[in-house]
């Protein structure tokens, strides 16, 4: 909590303290990159919501128009058309929905699972800790694309299985962070006293311990959403992500690959969409990290 002098009409200075949230926001505002990232992200959410209502999925997004296929950017189709005549700009705008829902969903799910497992591991230590850590080691040992590929090939390719497959990586990340924070704080006096007055374990974890892990977790959320967007589009690129004809950005790049030499724009624009989205999230994540703990600032 920081102290700031507030001028009142009395001669006495009163110090008003700001909550951590407000303080973080104040510092974040100063970081131009982070603000750009935040604005872009909000815009993306707006585009997603807008696209769902504005576009007619069957007509605008997956409706084929063979006579208009493979046309370069023009006034009528700002980013050109693909091999079956679909407008690329519309598909990119609509495609934001897949990237956002899958990544936010996967990270959210991973967050809940990871925090629960990490707290249990960190708090209890011993055998449970070892077991949970072995499992996360296993999941680190196999590259996350392989894990996703196995899950998808077991249960078929659909948006839901993709989400589950991708949440594994997020969960292991959150579990590690939570566990580390929990283990650090576990020994503190106020925790011991809470324990001794009979507060149940889960209440201790939620009220006292988790708030202290909050900073690294928040930073990790934004960064993980970015990584998950890339993972989701990678899986769609490989053909085991969101099934056709959905306009997922990675899938669009995969289709465009065949026409790379004659219609290069098909390979460029969806990739730009992915890159700028992740860039915005990284800027935001970096800014948050600096804002939350200025001591770490470079």
């Amino acid at each position: 909590m920081a102290m700031v002098a507030v001028k009142k009409d009395t001669s006495e200075k009163v110090y008003k303290s700001r909550s951590m949230g407000a303080e973080t926001w104040r510092r974040l505002k100063k970081n131009k990159g982070a603000i750009i990232g935040l604005i872009f992200f909000i815009l993306l959410i707006a585009v997603t919501i807008f696209s769902s209502f504005y576009f007619n999925y069957d007509k605008d997004i997956i409706g084929q128009n063979i006579s208009q296929r493979l046309q370069g950017p023009s006034a009528q189709h700002l980013l050109g058309t693909d091999q079956v005549g679909r407008d690329i700009l519309y598909r990119i705008l609509y495609g934001a929905k897949y990237s956002l829902t899958i990544s936010c969903g996967a990270v959210g799910l991973g967050l809940i699972i990871g925090v629960i497992l990490g707290s249990i591991a960190g708090f209890h230590g011993g055998f449970i800790d070892d077991l949970i850590m072995r499992i996360t080691d296993v999941l680190y040992a196999v590259p996350n694309i392989m894990v996703a590929v196995i899950i998808v090939s077991l249960f078929g390719a659909s948006t839901l299985t993709l989400l589950i497959a991708l949440c594994v990586y997020a969960a292991t990340n959150f579990a590690r962070i939570t566990r580390a924070s929990v283990m650090t704080i576990r020994g503190e006096e106020y925790v011991e006293s809470a324990y001794s007055i009979g507060l149940p374990t889960w209440k201790i974890i939620i009220k006292h311990i988790l708030p202290n892990c909050l900073s690294p977790i928040i930073v990790q959320i934004t960064l993980l959403i970015g990584t998950t967007i890339i993972s989701a589009s990678s899986l769609s690129f490989l053909g085991i992500g969101v099934p056709a004809p959905a306009p997922e950005w990675g899938a669009m790049l995969s289709e465009g690959r065949e026409y790379m030499r004659t219609n290069a724009y098909m390979c460029v624009f969806p990739g730009l969409a992915i890159m700028f989205t992740v860039l915005a999230l990284n800027l935001l994540g970096d800014g948050l990290r600096d804002a939350i703990d200025p001591k770490l600032k470079r």
Binding site: I62, G63, Q64, I66, Q83, V84, G239, A244, P245
Partner: peptide, 16 residues
């Protein structure tokens, strides 16, 4: 099959 032009044909059939 994920070869030749078959996936493209499939997606056109799907739309039609």
């Amino acid at each position: 099959a994920s070869d030749e032009q078959w996936p493209t044909m499939a997606s056109v059939v799907q739309a039609q």
